[in-house]
Design a protein around this nucleic acid. Structure first.
Lengths: 231, 231
DNA sequence: CCAAAAGTGTTACAATTACACCCATGA
DNA sequence: TCATGGGTGTAATTGTAACACTTTTGG
């Protein structure tokens, strides 16, 4: 069967006859938001060459598996969450990128509500890291993370993705804090409220924050679907 | 050697043990501009199931080859042009997308000056097609083309990519015509000139169009590098 | 009553849009 | 002299950015 497949693939005419041995993986930058900072979920590499270095979460793509599904599977396995918005960002395929041979990886990012995540205890040192503090990662994962972060930043407020990072009920201050963390600079409060409220994407819950040691903020929820998610 | 690689790859822990048999290809939407229309270079499929259907230009990625290089190689082989700007757009990997087995493809787009292209005679029915007229393509190439075209449209004037579609000397009317073809709607002439000239990216060549049956336009050339290209 | 964050409008500036007439050339 | 497209400026509108004081709560 493998030989037959190889023969078929060879009829596709490439420069070399051995391209069918390329392995395909997915790597996910799973972003969360906590303590006014953008976080990314990392674990420890299990590659000897990169032992003890941090890496994004990934896995090989199964032979009968859609890469998008492989990415969902990775996120589900490590965080317990399903039906998240996952966006494909870029495919990294330099021949020398992986120490164990030819592995091409498709990078995705996901946005999760950090409070809902039950971290999978079976994953070594699985934990959240401030994106700004990440230094070295195994193989080319720093490059991959930078690409995912840039994509997230340039996606813009209009795509409403940031709501995936928040609990269902939130204040405008929390929402602003999310955008500040993503964009990396402070925003003007009045202009931010004007803009967001003018979009009519928030439903006023007629509720207030509780037990805060200052004037409580009004709570809202997001009106409308986040693409790829079901609430 | 193949068995050793497979064994190594199996240690990467996937759902199934046969992911290493996934084949990887590149497919290129090569855009050109002519007769006030955005064109794309197509050829005839050599897949029995899609015989006589049009397809984008692609090839398998060699085992030791960077996908970006594979895309350059494809463009060079069919058009004779090298050092073009090529942008990776998306990776398509549905398990059922290809009739000859598991082939995941990385899509790229390129912008070429159609006048410089010497079409490779060895490619069946290789020719330019108006993007707006493209109906059915082999496998999922219509989807791939739509993705590449959308990426090109949303890239915006600021990225200066459209210059790749023009000869070195061009008039503002030609440039405007390119943007109109890409964006799919007419633009106001005065506003367009104001915007482009205000960018200071054009050098006035102090030359005029020749042999046109109307008032000749001033010729310009692009000042500065198109990313990924050398002039 | 103090600290801390919520809530609220107006003005200046920049960017974008809409719009109409004269000019240079070849046929 | 006509047809064709080149070349030009201004006013209205819209969007964005800057900016300070009052309110509500818990401690």
């Amino acid at each position: 069967m493998a030989a037959l497949l190889a023969k078929n693939l060879n009829t596709l005419a490439g420069e070399s006859g051995d391209y069918f041995r390329i392995a395909l993986s997915v790597d996910c930058a799973i972003f969360g938001f906590d303590d006014h900072e953008l976080k990314v979920l990392l674990t420890r590499s299990d590659l000897g060459e990169f032992k003890n270095q941090w890496t994004l979460l990934g896995d090989m793509v199964g032979f009968h598996e859609d890469p998008d599904q492989a990415a969902s599977r990775v996120v589900k396995k490590r965080t317990g969450l399903r039906n998240l918005y996952l966006e494909q960002v870029h495919t990294f395929g330099r021949p020398d990128r992986h120490p164990r041979g030819r592995v091409v990886t498709i990078a995705y990012y996901a946005l999760v509500n950090i409070g809902k995540v039950r971290l999978n205890a079976g994953t070594p040192d699985l934990d959240w890291h401030s994106v700004g503090d990440v230094r070295q990662l195994a193989t080319d994962h720093r490059l991959i993370l930078e690409n995912c972060h840039r994509r997230l930043r340039t996606q813009g407020v209009e795509r409403h993705l940031a709501f995936g990072l928040l609990p269902p009920k939130f204040s405008l201050a929390q929402l602003q804090s999310v955008y500040e963390a993503i964009e990396g600079h402070p925003l003007d409060r009045r202009n931010f409220r004007k803009k967001i409220l003018g979009m009519h994407i928030l439903e006023d819950l007629q509720e207030m924050e509780k037990a805060v040691s200052h004037r409580p903020g009004r709570l809202y929820r997001f009106r409308g679907l986040i693409p790829g998610t079901f609430f």
